[in-house]
């Protein structure tokens, strides 16, 4: 079953800006789906329409088969939204925010209290349940929004940049939480600017740019298209000058650190052989950047060049 189905979705704002130019998108039930795109690409507009916060100009959106216009209540019941920015009452307690949201979804008091406790414990916020929300840290506020979105046990959870601005430790903990929620059967759509996040969590991906879907495929197929890997080499001894090795593009970072672009068809063995021949000893090697980032930039760049051609 399709968790989300979008057909020919368009949105033109009152100022004439065309945010979505007829997008089609399907997300299967149980998927962990990445929706990526640069700022202003149309991601937030699409999410706004799916979650009934923005009115579409035309097109059709269904959530688990329920049309968001014709079958609005059922469609909304299937959906949980974690927005990009904090949007709860800053004077309300943590427990109050989550419990009230359960009430808005029609959960009876006893069940609402049980679900509130469960979600706050999942988010490691139970100890903060009586704290007024404005006193929470940024990371905690984001976790409150996730608990709030999950309190009615939605079948589809949309996370709009959930880890923006949180430290690495909390981000990793949130990744684990998202994986667990997905493994428990909840379909997740994730937007993020941390492409490493999308690469490690998501199975399928769509990239949106200038109101169009420019890529929609599974993550493995997308990453397989990469022809060049980027590595950072830490050297044992300082270099006087940048070595030149045929087939590889080397870049000077410091006298003991080099960046290298490695074409997949050549591989690393020849590089190490050439370095050894020059008495350059490599102490360690790591990926310079995540692979998806390179592809993302290539796709956006190709699209932009196409638009200007």
């Amino acid at each position: 079953m399709k968790a989300l189905s979008i057909r020919n979705l368009r949105k033109t704002y009152h100022n004439g800006f065309e945010a979505l130019k007829g997008i089609d998108l399907d997300v299967e039930e149980g998927d962990f789906f990445a929706l990526l795109g640069p700022n202003g690409a149309g991601k937030s507009t699409a999410i706004g329409i799916i979650s009934s916060l923005v009115t579409a100009s035309s097109g059709k959106v269904s959530i688990f088969g329920h049309d968001i216009k014709a079958d609005n209540a059922k469609a909304k019941s299937c959906l949980g939204l974690v927005p990009q920015e904090v949007n709860f009452n800053q004077f309300e307690t943590v427990k109050g925010i989550v419990y009230n949201q359960a009430g808005y979804y029609g959960l009876p008091r006893k069940l609402a209290l049980q679900r509130t406790e469960l979600c706050l414990k999942q988010m490691d916020l139970w100890d903060k349940r009586d704290t007024v929300s404005r006193r929470l840290s940024g990371g905690m506020k984001r976790r409150v929004m996730i608990a709030r979105a999950m309190v009615h046990a939605p079948k589809l959870l949309i996370l709009d940049e959930p880890t923006a601005g949180v430290d690495i430790e909390i981000r990793r903990a949130m990744w684990e939480m998202m994986k667990t929620v997905n493994q428990q059967g909840t379909t997740i759509i994730l937007t993020t600017h941390y492409l490493e996040e999308a690469e490690s969590l998501c199975r399928n991906i769509a990239i949106i740019d200038q109101g169009h879907i420019v890529e929609n495929t599974d993550m493995a197929s997308l990453l397989a298209r990469l022809h060049i890997d980027h590595f950072v080499l830490d050297l044992a001894d300082p270099l006087d000058s940048l070595p030149v090795i045929d087939g590889y593009q080397l870049e000077w970072v410091s006298d003991k650190v080099l960046n290298v672009a490695v074409p997949k068809e050549i591989g690393l063995n020849r590089l190490f052989a050439q370095l050894s021949a020059r008495n350059i000893n490599v102490v360690s090697l790591k990926n310079k950047s995540n692979r998806l980032e390179q592809l993302f930039l290539d796709l956006i760049d190709t699209k932009a060049k196409g638009a200007h051609a």
């Binding site: 916060l53 209540a73 909304k76 959906l79 949007n87 009452n89 029609g106």
Partner: peptide, 17 residues
């Protein structure tokens, strides 16, 4: 205030007529 703090969105995303 609900509009200003954007927590009106809590109501708009929920299935409330």
């Amino acid at each position: 205030s609900t509009k200003f703090q954007r927590n009106i969105e809590e109501l708009l995303v929920a299935p409330i007529p």
